[in-house]
């Protein structure tokens, strides 16, 4: 084995979710026709990683949404890592933005941050939004996966890599 490039690109959770979901569907399709068994390390990791990602905001995202948000965030002068984390974590409160954005207090005014939060919530709608208003109804972070994550056929190769 040879390592050609240690880090070609950063991936959003959405991109990983999509690959694993496709693979999961392929495995299920093969299982119905043949008796092919996949090695345990593959199936276990796939199951656990999908389970984790199902609890994050990426389940309802699409390539269009992420591309749109990326272009909208241009005017805020954020770094690549900051944009990636905004997409992955989908911050809902100013305190989360302060964690993600370095020296947030110096770079942004309070109004800017609120505008930014509204933008993020509007561009990346998620099914826990109704609960978000009354704060902690969604405390356990469990969200039902939706099917529309795969609805877009746009090629998102290196979506975050080109940030």
């Amino acid at each position: 084995m040879e390592i050609i490039n240690r880090q070609e690109a950063l991936l959003t959770n959405y991109e990983v979710y999509k690959v694993l979901k496709e693979e999961d569907d392929r495995h299920k399709a093969i299982k119905t026709t043949t008796k092919t068994k996949y090695p345990e390390n593959v199936t276990t990791l796939k199951f656990e990683a999908l389970q984790y990602l199902n609890g994050t905001a990426c389940t309802t995202q699409s390539a269009d949404q992420i591309a749109l948000l990326k272009s909208q965030l241009l005017e805020y002068d954020l770094t690549k890592a900051e944009i990636l984390q905004i997409i992955n974590l989908r911050p809902k409160a100013p305190v989360e933005l302060h964690l993600i954005i370095e020296e947030c207090g110096e770079r942004f005014a309070i109004e800017d941050l609120e505008e930014l939060l509204e933008l993020i919530l509007a561009t990346l709608p998620h099914n826990d939004d109704s609960d978000a208003a009354d704060a902690n109804a969604d405390g356990d972070g469990e969200t039902e996966p939706r099917d529309n994550a795969n609805s877009s056929n746009m090629d998102v190769d290196n979506l975050s890599g080109d940030l």
Binding site: M1, E2, I4
Partner: peptide, 30 residues
């Protein structure tokens, strides 16, 4: 998550010949 480029020489055993080359290789990589 990050993308890492790797190179390796992998074997495809005869029972995998029914799959497409790409799927057989991906399964072997995984």
């Amino acid at each position: 998550f990050v993308l890492v480029v790797l190179q390796d020489t992998l074997k495809i055993i005869p029972s995998e010949f029914t799959k497409s080359r790409e799927d057989a290789l991906k399964d072997e990589i995984n």
